[in-house]
Design a protein around this nucleic acid. Structure first.
Length: 693
RNA sequence: GGGGCCGUAGCUCAAUCGGUUAGAGCAGCAGACUCAUAAUCUGUUGGUUCGGGGUUCGAGUCCCCGCGGCCCUACCA
């Protein structure tokens, strides 16, 4: 019997473009949906833009236009990006829709009727100029602990202490610069604790969640009383006004998940279907795909709401980890914060779809995009193995057709057909990585088969043309089987294969029966290797030098430049350069200027207890400006000889927490290390605080 | 500061409830082939499972202490 399955991916926020981190989720979900559809199940892929909240409101103001105009624009971009990666939604809605408003009102009524809503006053900083309450991240000021200026609302990056925005010295709004006032406003909360027994049961049984997630919830939330959840906001706010709480709005996280239902409703209206069949029927399974950061909302809050309002509970919430690039969090300054559109300008979307598939498992682990591995995997698996099968066979039969009866292939086709169910189970369980492995084994076998039959030799023998055609018939059928299994991942390859073999792939079971007698078109290259130059360009284009503070490891050692005098006169050998070759990559003037180097005077120096290599230095940049720096020069310089001398330091290096304290800069020195360390000194006349250009 | 996840071959990952000699792919190396987009095929070298203790007949797996990495920290989208 055909299953009915409703699938959602998390709603992207309408405050920014889609990037490759987002794509991991939408591609994972798209693969799962395409798989279900190919298996003959009725499956809907539902998504929408998440459009409400302070951030949208503020951005619209800054851009001098309405929120509606902003989110309409963003929606266009999002849809365009998704289409570029062959992510095919059945409906892409918006949380700012009539359907969503109606559903919010209806669900709000349900939770109110169930006695879950309670009103309490909340004290918060308010920006009198922007006329809105301020979330912590919109407040900056001087740290109450270490007095470092320009720190965040809730924690200090200099001394790493935590506090509340109210404790900040000289707080100011990052929206308007105004001094915020402490104000009180009523908020309404949902008493989640009342649903505690239900959530205990739902999260811990029925395999709705991955085990690590179930354990996490049990250990972190369900062991204690569940906190009341603040789901309303006082003005000004961009969202839906609450009917029985005039002037107040639902918090964006209340209406966002309801957007799943609203978007489904839109699809139902357009297709003459009933919403209840999808959201209130036991015959339909609801599956959510989300990232681990929004676990709380989707596994506690959301099931509680659904239960209370009488909607279907998710059959499963599939939670994935984050995407890292080169083993690290995506970074704008490193160019690894890659937007979907930037990727599309340079590389093939199928490559990324395959790479993600080959790395995705049902676990919550983070997934790393290593660009070298990306190239190696795509080149080897897709081009070298899979497409190669078609490439080496099709040419021998192009313009002709496949054999009329399927030749003896020693059981290869039957074996690969049998693998179909195994692979289907892997896809079903979100173990795309396992599925890709199985498929690659099939590709290896096909290549081995062709190798052993040596069709290129038969081609020269007039009497063996029939045998040649048989071999190619087997090869191309094995290829087509593989493409069927890759359909969820590589829809474009499917279309190309349809064209080559003149037989459309429409169902998973197309891998069960062989193709015979059909015409074969001329082979055209189906996929290119990854071009490293394009990868580089993509990274380069993704670099946003203004976006982040200087990086803690990008500036240190390589700030040298060449000179024009002959080195021979001084007997300077090539050894230092040979030992440490110059950086190959050039740095732009802007990048160089990011490093703020200053003349500094060492006003204090001392040993650090327990440290083998460090000295603690206090640098003066003139006036009151000082820096605490740990320098790895113990054993080379004695503290006493350092006090009073001038050095060059990097003054805007990101502070770094070290074992013995925070280091706030770096003293420039040269030499390979060990005993060979030479501090840089300015010529006479330089004064502390002067910039080094 | 609090918390989570992780550490296995050069790289990416396996290894059922604690149970034989820790397995694959890629890379590397050697050879073959020349149809195929420098593709493919055959063979093959790599491991003190981060370190140190402990429990056990038996530990990659469980416990403790370190070290290292990534991430989260609930008015935040």
């Amino acid at each position: 019997m055909t299953r009915r399955i409703l699938v959602t991916a998390a709603l992207p926020y309408a405050n920014g473009p889609i990037h490759i981190g987002h794509l991991l989720e939408y591609i994972q979900t798209d693969i799962w949906v395409r798989f279900q559809k190919l298996r003959g199940n009725r499956c809907l892929y539902i998504c929408a833009d998440d459009t409400h909240g302070t951030a949208i409101m503020i951005r619209a103001r800054q851009e001098g236009r309405s929120e509606e105009a902003l989110i309409a624009d963003m929606r266009e971009q999002h849809i365009h990006d998704f289409a570029g990666f062959d992510i095919e939604f059945d409906n892409y809605g918006s949380t700012h829709s009539d359907e969503n408003r109606q559903l919010c009102e209806q669900i709000w009524q349900s939770v109110t009727d169930a006695g879950l809503v309670v009103e309490k006053p909340v004290e918060q900083l308010y920006d009198p100029e922007a006329k809105t309450y301020l979330a912590d991240r919109f407040v900056k000021g001087t740290c109450p602990v270490c007095k470092a200026p320009d720190q965040n609302g809730d924690h200090c990056e200099s001394c790493l202490s935590n506090y509340t925005p109210k404790e900040l010295i000289d707080p100011r709004s990052t929206l308007s610069g105004a001094t915020p006032e402490l104000r009180q406003a009523p908020h309404r909360f949902i008493r989640l604790e009342q649903l505690h027994p239900f959530l205990d049961e739902w999260t811990q049984s029925g395999e709705h969640l991955q085990t690590e997630i179930a354990n996490y919830l049990k250990g972190h939330f369900l062991g204690d009383e569940l906190r009341d959840w603040d789901v309303t906001r006082p003005p000004q706010y961009f969202g839906f006004e609450i009917p029985d709480f005039p002037g107040h709005y639902w918090y964006v996280w209340f209406d966002a998940p309801i957007g799943y239902i609203a978007s489904t409703w839109q699809w139902c209206q357009a297709n003459g279907e009933s919403l209840d069949d999808w959201w209130k029927s036991p015959d339909c399974d609801v599956h959510h795909f989300i990232g681990k950061d929004i676990t709380y909302f989707h596994t506690l809050f959301w099931p509680g709401i659904l239960k209370t309002a009488g909607f279907s509970l998710p059959k499963q919430v599939h939670i994935h980890g984050f995407l890292t690039v080169g083993g690290e969090k995506m970074s704008k300054s490193k160019g690894t914060f890659i937007q979907a559109s930037t990727y599309l300008d340079h590389l093939d979307p199928s490559h990324l779809r395959y790479f993600f598939a080959s790395k995705l498992t049902a676990k919550v682990d983070d997934l790393d995009l290593n660009l070298d591995e990306f190239k190696a995997k795509v080149d080897s698996d897709l081009v070298g193995k899979v497409v190669n099968i078609a490439s080496r066979c099709a040419k021998f039969v192009a313009g002709g057709s496949l054999s009329e009866t399927y030749p003896d292939d020693e059981g290869l086709f039957a074996n690969a057909a049998a693998a179909g169910e195994r692979i289907a189970v892997l896809y079903e369980n979100c173990d795309d990585n396992g599925a890709m492995r199985e498929v690659m084994v099939l590709a290896d076998r096909a290549n081995q088969y062709i190798e052993s039959r040596e069709p290129w030799k038969l081609r020269k023998d007039e009497t063996k043309q029939e045998e040649l055609r048989d071999i190619c018939t087997v090869g191309l059928n094995l290829f087509r089987q593989i493409v069927v299994y890759l359909t969820p991942v590589l829809p474009r390859l499917v279309r190309q294969t349809d064209e080559l073999l003149n037989a459309p792939i429409t169902h998973w079971d197309d891998a069960q029966s062989s193709l015979t007698g059909t015409p074969v078109s001329t082979f055209k290259h189906m996929m290119q290797r990854v071009d490293p130059k394009q990868v580089e360009k993509m990274i380069e284009e993704s670099k946003d030098t203004a976006a982040e503070a200087p990086n803690d490891d990008s500036s240190a050692g390589d700030a040298e430049s060449g000179h024009s005098r002959s080195s021979a006169t001084y007997g300077d050998g090539p050894e230092p350069l040979e030992k440490e070759p110059m950086a190959e990559e050039q740095c732009t003037f802007d990048e160089f200027m990011k490093v703020d180097m200053r003349i500094a005077r060492i006003v204090a120096a001392g040993h650090v207890e327990g440290a083998d290599k460090l000295l603690q230095l206090t640098l003066s940049l003139g006036g009151e400006e000082t820096r605490n720096v740990f320098a790895g020069i113990k054993g080379v310089y004695e503290p006493e000889q350092l006090v009073g001398r001038l050095v060059v330091c990097c003054a805007n290096l990101q502070p770094r927490k070290m074992r013995f304290g925070i280091s706030e800069g770096m003293v420039l020195a040269s030499g390979p290390g060990g005993k060979d360390i030479y501090l840089l000194s300015p010529d006479d006349g330089a004064k502390p605080g002067m910039r080094v250009h």
